[in-house]
Design a protein around this nucleic acid. Structure first.
Length: 566
RNA sequence: GGGCUCGUGGCUUAGCUUGGAUAAAGCACCGGCCUUCUAAGCCGGGGAUCGCGGGUUCGAAUCCCGCCGAGUCCGCCA
């Protein structure tokens, strides 16, 4: 409902600006409407008008407010005042009423918007997901949920890098090192990868074997393809298990080798030769592509004629672009330069520009993560330990529950805490991962929000048991400060989701979730529901119901489960 | 050496795109609150030269320049 409020304030402001002598259209600025702690919505337009018309902003604001006319009917605004240079708007009871009504009515009908393919995680199938991939996966997944919420048709891709050197090393190693069958598949593959890599690094002959393997795979040698596929699929099955546990699903796994053997890479290179500035390396037949504004050329083909990641990724994006209106890639900071090169090369090919969400690295206090060196914390280990810790907390508080129920709550709380932790931080912040900190369930954001939801459920459950109805209610009875604040916060759900979607900033939702839970807790403390007088009880039950819906929706957007009790 | 990002109370962060109302939260710390719907909660308190130095501006955490610190990338890895 906040979005509607914004629209109305905009309308009213525009009308007033027509009446005063200030022509805001002359200015490039908008109406500068924003959230405020001093009002329900505020405008700073007076500042920019003041500058343009050489008047004190206080005078401008007062002048505008004097000409403001708030419609008599169907309005959401009660009044507007000039507070110094600010124009503050306040909502009326109809706004509060309408907000609850909208939430009760259910999902906002969304128009069908563009089709989006969002790629995230895309970890190399050489081992399990570690905490760095976790950040990618969670940022990506929350973005997917945000975009779907506002009506986009989103498909998620996991791009499988099956042609890289790492996989060659794995396949080579698997011939010499036994794969543990008592371990989760991706962890068993990592063991082979780490051991084989040490052998290859120590012996140059082995490296040549690996390269020969890679050439055969690229050429489509049947026996080699079989060996590769077995390893990659094995590893991916483990990765998928981890993702499922995190509540993350991909619609499609796209293998990069498809683009090589299907001829798409070759086509892309031919097309670049026609349209781009390509030259051969002086020493051999490697192909270099000169990109506009780039210092160095991009190598798109090796001296031995085999393909390179960049060329394969170009083919993949070209293929994708024909299947959607927007392409969004969630990449680590190490891929930033590559993403720019990718974008420029795609431009040459006449392919629409992909959008990138770049996140900074997660590192350990001991340094950066590396699967190859075996220096990482796996997502599985983290999930296991955090669920364990969550179970302890449930045990402490709920002796009355049976084991299955406790485990279920611990799982929801543990994974929720993990997801919240990862998504609450802006993607461009570097994270130094602290295991003890990550496991400290008690000071996590997610359980706080889940707890509010459980409290709401608890009230509704009791109300149902006692046969209290909600039916018709009188919204004007909700006049406590905490009630109004809660409703106003509820009204901002769509505003926040819209912003997170248009700015591709998932952490905005995390922040909102916490604030919403806080508002609910204040209401919970201030306003008894079940023991309130009958009419007031009805109204408050409706408010609790609405809070429950929005808390649950918000958690859902974050991919966090909303337990009914905890 | 060059590019990009980050640097906000003891710790973790929001705010920076689009400069404006006392810099906003959580954790930790200190002190209170369970005879009413779950205390994973609520209330109060102390604690910040917004990395440092300049500049633009009536006004800078926010914009510009320089420096320092951290991370990351810089042609045949992905």
């Amino acid at each position: 409902m906040f979005l509607e409020l914004e629209k109305e304030a905009e309308q009213v402001l525009k009308e007033a600006l027509k009446k005063v002598s200030y022509e805001y259209k002359d200015l490039e600025t908008g109406l500068e409407l924003e959230e405020s702690e001093h009002a329900d919505i505020t405008s700073r337009i007076a500042f920019s008008l003041a500058r343009a018309y050489k008047q004190p902003p206080e005078i401008v604001a007062a002048d505008i407010v004097n000409h403001l006319e708030i419609p008599a009917e169907h309005t959401l605004i009660s009044n507007a005042v000039a507070a110094g240079p600010y124009i503050n708007f306040y909502v009326n009871d109809f706004f509060l009423h309408k907000t609850l009504q909208r939430i009760k009515e259910g999902v906002k009908p969304v128009e069908r918007k563009a089709k989006i393919i969002l790629e995230h995680t895309s970890a190399n199938p050489d081992g399990p997901l570690h905490i760095g991939h976790l950040r990618n996966a969670i940022i990506g997944d929350v973005l997917v949920r945000v975009l779907k919420r506002v009506g986009y048709d989103v498909k998620t891709h996991f791009y499988v890098n099956d042609m890289g050197r790492q996989i060659g090393v794995v396949v080579w190693g698997a011939e010499r090192i036994a794969i543990a069958d008592d371990k989760k598949a991706d962890h068993a593959i990592a063991d082979v990868y780490i051991a084989a890599n040490r052998m290859v690094e120590a012996n140059n002959e082995f490296l040549k074997d690996v390269e020969a393997l890679m050439r055969k795979y690229e050429a489509g040698d049947e026996a080699v393809v079989k060996r590769y596929e077995a390893m990659v699929k094995k590893c991916l099955s483990g990765i998928q298990t981890s993702l499922q546990r995190l509540n993350i699903l991909h619609d499609l796994f796209v293998w990069e080798s498809e683009f090589v053997r299907g001829g798409a890479v070759k086509e892309v290179i031919e097309e670049l030769k026609q349209k781009g500035n390509i030259k051969s390396d002086s020493s051999g037949s490697a192909l270099l592509l000169q990109l506009e504004g780039m210092e160095k050329e991009l190598v798109i083909q090796r001296t031995d004629g085999t393909s390179l990641y960049t060329a394969r990724d170009l083919a993949y994006h070209k293929w994708k672009s024909n299947r959607c209106d927007r392409m969004i890639d969630v990449f680590g900071k190490d891929h930033e330069l590559v993403s720019q090169q990718l974008a420029k090369a795609l431009q040459i090919l006449g392919v629409k520009a992909p959008e990138f969400v770049i996140f900074e690295f997660v590192s350990l206090p001991t340094g950066s993560l590396s699967t190859r060196a075996g220096r990482y914390i796996s997502a599985d280990e983290l999930m296991e330990k955090i669920e364990e810790r969550a179970l302890k907390e449930v045990d402490k508080r709920r002796e009355d529950l049976d084991e299955d129920k406790k485990l279920e709550i611990a799982r929801k709380v543990g994974i929720g805490a993990l997801r919240y932790d990862m998504v609450k931080v802006s993607p461009d912040k570097h994270i130094v991962f602290d295991f003890n900190d990550a496991l400290d369930i008690e000071k996590k954001g997610a359980p706080f929000i889940q707890y509010s939801h459980a409290r709401a459920c608890s009230i509704l459950r009791a109300a149902k048991e006692q046969g209290f109805s909600m039916g018709d209610y009188e919204p004007t009875l909700l006049k406590e400060k905490s009630e109004k604040e809660l409703i106003k916060k509820l009204s901002k759900f769509w505003y926040i989701v819209e912003r997170a979607s248009s700015e591709l900033k998932p952490h905005l939702v995390a922040k909102y979730a916490r604030e919403l839970a806080e508002c609910f807790n204040l209401f919970y403390k201030d306003c008894p529901v079940l023991n309130a007088e009958s009419e007031l009880r009805k109204a408050r039950l409706v408010l609790v119901e609405c809070a429950k819906i929005v808390l649950s929706d918000t958690l859902n957007v974050l991919g966090i489960e909303a337990p009914e009790e905890m």
